[in-house]
Design a protein around this nucleic acid. Structure first.
Lengths: 229, 229
DNA sequence: GTGAGCATGATTGTATACGATTCTCGCTTC
DNA sequence: GAAGCGAGAATCGTATACAATCATGCTCAC
């Protein structure tokens, strides 16, 4: 997970990466059915490896595996959405502080390039990809903090945030995000851990308030789903 | 994960539970090879379901999956051990506070019964089982806090702590743990969130200092392993 | 016309089979 | 005698086949 591109990427890992990216970029919508045969045909592999990939995605809470029913792109509930951001609030601010204290010029450059990529994607109108890159910014911070364990948690939470945003986003201004990231970058450049921690805290709060988390569940895509739970 | 015993537990889940328990209770030692054929024979299932189970255990960092080499009970490094306890320090104190604020008589009783079970196991000399139950105490707190997302993370970290303790434990006095848990219980009973948070913080610190985390790797179990890395 | 019951098709769960990679161990060679 | 090498065995990775479960649409009774 989040490891540098390993040349011999075991079959299913390739599929996990591509499907995860598709979900992050909102090309696979929440609730969509992921038939094993269909996925296998797309990637030219058998159901065996598809099942392994789907299981890994299920562990990340990106897909929902229902016994004897199949795999579906996850549909986080309002409660789950809140919990994800509460968990992020516990983990990320302190991690940002650690990152600031361990910052190096090379790491700073990587963060800057993430922001640049994000802006470029935004200019090209590819908001899905911009969102994905925006998430990677957060994961990169955890990596710089040299906390692999926390990094994995954050990576998972960022992933799930993608789905949450797809379902509950209400505000148009995606620009504020870039501003927040830019401010963080400056704190990192200054090596100001306290500032970085505070900025991250308010950035997450800002993200949370930009969601419409009034109890209503998601807009059911079919009558069946509206009644099934 | 951590769900109430579902009657129709999909084949591999049964194996995951039993193997995880075996690892938690230190019946499966770190570094031990887990041959797919062998495991399948033990549980009377085919390699297909064994592979699924091993994959899930790998996601929890309880087993280490090496491509074309097989599955092994994980051997956390010193660095990993530190990271796990740092992550716990980020998550658990605040979660304990939440739990204290949401405490109910029924939840309090469940915690008490956990402690009782732990003492009983200790009296019977089953330190492995006592350790396992001691971990479940922490997970139960997260459940009471009604934070499923954080609960899953804590469950994983507690699991990994089991392996870490198996490798790096140096202090005999397992009793201090029970004392800490008892003190926590009283804070919960009083509904004192601040106290619970502080107690949890120092409890985790105490756990950490009871480990011998000087750089030395693990004691290799075979000459081969001593030389392989 | 409506609703229950059943048969059929589709999809997942599990087992088995085969090819690929790694490990073992005896043999050759220096 | 020790190091390098290669054939055989063991183990893993993937594909395929079959069994179990669920969804769909029909028939038929009311």
């Amino acid at each position: 997970m989040a490891r540098a591109a390993q040349k011999t990427e075991s079959g299913d890992e390739r599929i996990v990466d591509r499907m995860a990216t598709a979900i992050h970029e909102h090309r696979l919508a929440p609730g969509m059915k992921l038939s094993e045969d269909e996925v296998g045909e797309v990637y030219g592999v058998s159901r065996t490896v598809v099942r392994a990939a789907l299981q890994k995605l299920a562990h990340m809470h990106l897909v929902d595996l229902r016994r004897n029913r199949g795999a579906f792109v996850a549909q986080p509930t309002v409660k789950e959405a809140r919990e994800v951001f509460e968990a992020r609030a516990l983990l990320e601010p302190r991690t940002a502080r650690s990152a600031a204290e361990r910052m190096t010029p090379a790491a700073l450059a990587r963060l800057q390039s993430h922001i640049d990529d994000e802006h470029r994607a935004l200019d090209e109108g590819d908001t899905g990809r911009a969102l994905h890159l925006s998430g990677l910014f957060h994961v990169e911070i955890a990596r710089i903090a040299d906390q692999k364990t926390v990094e994995e948690f954050i990576a998972q939470l960022v992933s799930r945030s993608s789905l949450i945003i797809a379902l509950y986003w209400q505000r148009r201004a995606a620009l504020c995000e870039s501003h927040a990231h830019h401010a963080l970058l400056q704190a990192f450049a200054a090596g100001d851990g306290t500032l970085a921690e505070d900025l991250m805290k308010s950035h997450l709060l800002d993200l949370l308030t930009s969601l419409d988390l009034r109890e209503r569940g998601s807009v059911p895509q079919s009558l069946r789903e509206a009644l099934s739970e």
